[in-house]
């Protein structure tokens, strides 16, 4: 689904690169974790995969097409759902309105379908009352669920999450990772998660480690099932 071809990134000095000539493939229906020390470029890598930034060299292909060719904004709108570490919900809206906004912007097939959005929120444990409350009145855990629900309701086949379990206790962290795996396995989405949490990462189908400017498979992805 998503491939990188000779992907390189540096800030100011080409020789002082974060990673160089990366060739990776991410398939649908599999959850991937990218782990590594702070400052190794995990977040930069995920921002490139999510179409939030442009590579310095090389290209990213989505279903064989360069994502820059069709426009990063268009790529984000139709093909990627992003879950941010800080949730980044619209604070002047309710949980339900946050989801409805995402459905509208991404031109989802469920655009305008309140029932679908409510079902998704309900699935993630929010009551009807909580769905209609301003998101600022929800707890941190509930807000995180709303952020994940926002990514789930969209039709995007690629879900990218930056430290989704950051600051969460183990139980909640497990719950969140389970949700992402559910997205990959039940909805057939390609889920890429950046995390510090080694235990959480281990729950993913594949784990990539970024260390000393090198990216290595710590846990090889399973062979994707052949589709007729």
């Amino acid at each position: 689904m998503l491939e990188t071809k000779d992907l390189s990134y540096w800030y100011t000095n080409k020789d002082d690169y974060l990673f160089k000539d990366l060739d990776l493939t991410f398939d649908a229906g599999i959850s991937y974790a990218i782990v590594g020390e702070s400052g190794t470029g995990k977040t930069t890598l995920i921002s490139l995969l999510a179409g939030l930034d442009k590579p310095r060299a090389g290209k990213i292909l989505f279903r064989g097409e360069d994502i820059q060719a069709s426009g990063l904004s268009n790529f984000r709108r139709h093909h990627v759902s992003i879950v941010f570490q800080a949730y980044n919900l619209f604070t002047y809206m309710s949980a339900l309105e946050n989801l409805m906004t995402a459905l509208s912007i991404t031109h989802s097939s469920h655009n305008g379908d309140r029932q679908y959005a409510m079902q998704m929120l309900s699935k993630l444990g929010l009551t009807e009352e909580q769905m209609k409350q301003n998101v600022q009145r929800l707890s941190g855990g509930q807000q995180r669920r709303v952020a994940i629900a926002r990514a789930m309701v969209c039709d995007a086949p690629l879900v990218v999450a930056d430290e989704p379990t950051g600051n969460l206790d183990e139980a909640n962290s497990d719950e969140v990772m389970a949700l992402f795996n559910q997205l990959a396995h039940d909805q057939g989405k390609c889920v890429i998660i950046v995390t510090h949490d080694a235990a959480g990462a281990a729950k993913c189908d594949a784990v990539l480690r970024l260390k000393h400017r090198e990216l290595t498979w710590q846990k090889q992805p399973p062979v994707p099932a052949m589709v007729d």
Partner: peptide
């Protein structure tokens, strides 16, 4: 931040 989220969602 709000604008950033909108842009991240792909809003024009």
């Amino acid at each position: 931040f709000e604008i950033g989220v909108l842009l991240a969602l792909g809003e024009r």
